[in-house]
């Protein structure tokens, strides 16, 4: 990947797999390695890059239209004075979302995936090298709108946040268990529309989440009403950023940062 950090020198596999030869004269190897080993290693490298600079990385996932970009805009409005924010936008086409973020005076890199239905760690790594990491406290990655594929790919984030808007069904966690199980935080968005969506009951969404045996919190918010309520989300972000800073103060970051894949 990048020449500066040496991650192009990676070696994906060890050569110490147990080997036997079968009756047909073929060699049998026991491997037992994650299929997404290369992506996972790249993601770990991305995390190290960001931790070296004290950056908290959040991966935002949802179906298209759940309000990810609106949430980013409202978050920037609320936190820009206390945290230096940057955004990586993932979409199949257009720079539209990055332009919306840049209009707020925040650095944004748009990844257009073409036909790919998810971001992966390589794409994010390239985007990281287009940002000045010395000037970021909080990096928000807006994944491609999709409740299936993005769940399988680690990007190097610290936390996954999954949005569920009230215009969707409250049984989405039961329909897309892999995605919602991956969530460290679930945000029920557009709650100002709840009076018009009586079929969506936040308690039922929370119950479907509990069936996934997740202990992740579930907050309700809206960004568009006359009284937007983002308090729980903003406090969660502040707490996560502060916890990361404390952890990095205790751990030898310079060692971690040299763990190139």
């Amino acid at each position: 990947m990048c020449d500066t950090c040496g991650c192009h020198q990676h070696d994906l596999t060890d050569s110490n797999e147990p080997i036997t030869t079968n009756a047909a004269g073929r060699v049998e190897l026991t491997v037992l390695k994650p299929l997404l080993n290369a992506n996972d290693q790249q993601a770990a490298h991305n995390r190290a890059h960001c931790e070296q600079h004290g950056i908290l990385v959040i991966n935002l996932m949802s179906s298209p239209g759940a309000g990810k970009t609106s949430l980013l805009e409202a978050t920037i409005d609320a936190l820009a004075a206390e945290l230096r924010i940057a955004v990586i936008e993932g979409d199949l086409e257009t720079e539209n979302d990055a332009q919306r973020i840049r209009a707020k005076g925040v650095a944004a890199v748009q990844i257009t995936t073409g036909t790919a239905c998810h971001l992966d760690a390589n794409m994010v790594h390239e985007a990281l090298h287009r940002l000045d990491l010395n000037k970021i406290d909080l990096l928000l990655i807006e994944n491609v709108g999709n409740l299936v594929c993005p769940a399988s790919f680690d990007l190097g984030q610290h936390r996954n946040v999954v949005l569920l808007s009230v215009t969707e069904g409250d049984d989405k966690p039961a329909k897309y268990p892999v995605m919602f199980r991956a969530a460290d935080l679930v945000l029920i968005t557009k709650t100002d529309l709840l009076p018009y969506c009586p079929e969506f009951q936040p308690a039922r969404a929370a119950q479907a989440l509990r069936h996934l045996a997740t202990h992740s919190p579930c907050f309700q918010l809206n960004t568009r009403s006359s009284a937007p309520d983002l308090t729980a989300w903003l406090n969660w972000l502040r707490a996560e950023q502060s916890a990361l800073k404390q952890r990095l103060a205790l751990e030898p970051v310079h060692v971690r940062a040299h763990e190139h894949v």
Partner: peptide, 9 residues
């Protein structure tokens, strides 16, 4: 989601 085993000639 594991690659468990390979058979090679």
């Amino acid at each position: 989601l594991l690659l468990a085993h390979l058979e090679l000639t």
